[in-house]
Design a protein around this nucleic acid. Structure first.
Lengths: 186, 186
DNA sequence: GGAAGCATGTAAAGTGTTACATGATTTT
DNA sequence: AAAATCATGTAACACTTTACATGCTTCC
């Protein structure tokens, strides 16, 4: 792989018609954030590198004192994006979930505190699920069109995941509650 | 938060009776890896830092030329671990999934290549699911005991997640196939 | 007139991975 | 005798985040 995934994220966004660094960051926050985030301090240097290496071309579109620099894919950039998408290479996968790490070590806590921990995990999953249904999915639906179907599909996967996760924790809560009641009867 | 999550991972492993850096790395690879990984080059310096700050104590248990350094939680370390577990602070959550990123940009590919991409995603989820059911879950079940129940619960969540994910991609494959057939009839 | 949003970038600090380096012990 | 596993650690590199720094434009 010539480029890192964050570089392909930028190439992909440019292919989808997003033009400036600032807009890329905004688009990421409204779409790929849940499986691939990026900060401005990543986007701007990466745009410069990609331009230097010929994957994209930039042009200055400042209006007066208001700076604005737009970018477009070159043929080389388009090819690189498609090769990456087609590549059989195992895609990288990284998951860091501090909430699950706490659950893993929850034996160190008394039962009441575990209940509270699991409740917080469920509530958080529910909140993210809501933000998907209220913000991200409607936006993805409104921008979906022939030739732009997969952003919506990815958004649905995210929404379904958080709904699934919330349900999983809710069931764990039920089991813990049932156990606590049994323990009290004894 | 005084310590970073990786430090709490180490405190938690020590609390669970794991004694050396090498063993911590092995335990992580067999249990928390799927929601929190760690490398040896992280574990050894972190053990040294935690010892320096009084969260743990180390003692040399080398036998002859074979080095071995074991660690135990101090009272301070135990308190820190429990405070972290009880803390209401929003747990960090990071997810980087190159496969989903490719799916997001799949509009750049012809239909056949998209099918292949989704198939690979499903097959990968199935492979991880299998490794859970064949290795991680049985191990978690065999080491589960009163006072050590949550590692098994976390392993179940991981296994259920990959099964869910595999099913999600399988359904997407069906939908894509159905669409392709409809398109051919026209 | 002030707040929110548009727009670009840099610097420092933190975090993590891969590769390197070494050697003993146990299993096959 | 070789291979796998136990066991510790360092150095160089890669990557990311947070904070800093600046100023215009549009909306209320």
């Amino acid at each position: 792989m010539r480029l890192k995934p964050s570089a392909y994220l930028i190439l992909g966004m440019l292919r989808n018609g997003v033009e400036t660094g600032y807009e890329i960051k905004r688009a990421v926050d409204l779409s790929t954030r849940f499986f691939w985030a990026a900060s401005l301090a990543q986007v701007y240097p990466e745009l410069a590198r990609l331009a230097e290496q010929g994957y994209i071309t930039g042009s200055d579109e400042s209006r007066g004192a208001r700076p604005r620099r737009t970018y477009r894919l070159t043929k080389k950039g388009e090819t690189a994006l498609e090769e990456w998408l087609r590549s059989g290479r195992m895609p990288s996968f990284e998951f860091r979930d501090e909430g699950l790490l706490r659950l893993f070590f929850a034996d160190a806590l008394p039962a009441d505190d575990v209940t509270a921990l699991v409740r917080r995990l469920r509530e958080h999953a529910e909140a993210v699920d809501r933000s998907f249904r209220e913000e991200i999915l409607p936006l993805a639906e409104s921008t979906s069109a022939p030739g732009f179907r997969y952003p919506l599909i990815a958004a649905r996967l995210g929404a379904d995941y958080y709904a699934w996760r919330a349900a999983w924790f809710a069931q764990l809560e039920d089991e813990l509650r049932a156990q606590a009641e049994r323990a009290q009867q004894d």
